[in-house]
Nucleic acid binder design. Structure first.
Lengths: 182, 182
DNA sequence: ACGAGCATGTAAGAGGTTACATGATTAT
DNA sequence: ATAATCATGTAACCTCTTACATGCTCGT
């Protein structure tokens, strides 16, 4: 997973839409963007400084209240170029999921091992929660046809994520049911 | 992704099935296990030594041919205990996919951007290849009911992976078609 | 006044990739 | 013979998480 600096392009992509502070970027990762990317603030702030040194973005200071300094970052044309270049690069190899449900399940050999049922019930809860969240966001963001056209990529990936969760939940529930009928 | 040392448990899980060399483990990551885990040999060999120092595994030497030394690792009972404990631990939070197709798509706003079509056609090829591979493995490994029962977890995760690829491919092809009808 | 959240940063160390390195075996 | 693959290892470097650290603002 190391060595690609994808965070760089995630930041550039977000900054192309709006000027943002590091804190704003962090918050975006806890909403539906969190479905496909996440980074801690301790990684975001240094990366922003690095991008500024590379002249891909600039910053401006704003004072909020009496003295709280907020640093807004803005993309520069070199940043847009770098982003566009990345978007046109061929895709990498598909990465392994590294999902711990799958991993653990793989190492349980016997159908009647109780731990399989435990894994499934935990996994169903996790994915139900995610499915509900994503569905709600779809309603909030893209109930109008206009919004779908305006942020078409975002609309597509949200649709894809919901389909994924839906399919997986259905499968999990089916298998869980047949596990109970031993 | 840092900080969980999942590789440790992957290795323990594999060694519980058979004694293996580091090279064997690496090879397993390029077959269907690669769908959910991968590590380079430069990470595997040191990890094996670390696990041996922790007394979770031991090793034995074998000579292949005239002088090629192969180090087979074997799991110890402390290793089995560690593995079992991990299997019973609650699952982590769902991790973001960090998949670059999704990421790139998110940053393309306009329906008519040519790059969307490029992304989809690349992605379709990637997943078609994966789907074909996984389906073939399913046929090889689990055509008999007996094998399904013997490695039940493996059977389930392979089934899950195939369902995932199938659903995704269908979605990709549908969207691709409607993109072409602008 | 106080607590929740806003806002930004650094340091240490674990996890992971790339590149460098070497030598043996097997199939053609 | 020679190329592909078997087999093992280290060093440098990047990515990412965890933990430590600090101060401000807004709502109640």
């Amino acid at each position: 997973m190391a060595k690609k600096n994808t965070l760089k392009y995630v930041i550039l992509g977000l900054l192309r839409q709006h000027d943002l502070t590091g804190y704003d970027i962090k918050k975006l990762f806890s909403c539906e963007i969190g479905d496909f990317w996440n980074s801690k603030h301790s990684q975001i702030y240094p990366e922003l400084k690095k991008l500024e040194e590379e002249h891909l973005i600039t910053s401006r200071m704003e004072i909020s209240g009496k003295k709280l300094e907020k640093t807004y970052y803005m993309i520069k044309s070199a940043g847009i170029d770098a982003l566009d270049k990345w978007l046109s690069d061929p895709l990498d190899e598909i990465q392994p999921t590294r999902d711990d449900f799958t991993l653990k399940l793989y190492f349980i050999d016997h159908r009647h091992d109780q731990r399989i049922k435990n894994l499934f019930s935990e996994e169903i809860l996790r994915h139900q929660k995610k499915f509900d969240y994503l569905s709600a966001r779809m309603g909030e963001l893209f109930s109008s046809r206009e919004n779908q056209e305006q942020n078409f990529g975002h609309y597509l990936i949200l649709k894809k994520a919901i389909l994924r969760e839906n399919t997986q939940l259905k499968w999990l529930k089916d298998e869980y049911r047949s596990l109970k009928n031993n």
